[in-house]
């Protein structure tokens, strides 16, 4: 079973890196980009087969390590 975790800065937290990417896109002629937010994707290969249990465990991983919930939010996909 695979889990995919998306970690993004919370809404309202300034993302200077995303802003730099937006500027660079502007320099390349992509004028219509109004905002860029940059995040992380973390893929996990899990041994278990119980989807609900896996999601609960990955949620705990996010809270304990994968995301800093002071500034970041996360979503989990189990496939």
């Amino acid at each position: 079973m695979k889990a995919r975790v998306h970690v993004m800065l919370k809404d309202g937290v300034l993302d200077p890196q995303g802003e730099a990417v937006r500027h660079a896109l502007g320099h390349l002629g992509f004028g219509g980009v109004e905002a860029v937010r940059q995040g992380k994707v973390i893929e996990l290969d899990l041994a278990g087969t119980d989807k609900a249990a896996a999601e609960a465990e990955v949620r705990e991983m996010c809270e304990k390590l994968l995301a800093n919930t002071v500034i970041e939010k996360y979503t989990i996909e189990i496939a």
Binding site: L14, P16, Q17, A20, V70, I71
Partner: peptide, 17 residues
């Protein structure tokens, strides 16, 4: 120490990058 939760807040990338 902020990651441990011993201090509040977080240290982000410098605004100037």
């Amino acid at each position: 120490l902020t990651e441990m939760g011993l201090l509040p807040g977080a240290l982000m990338r410098n605004a100037s990058l």
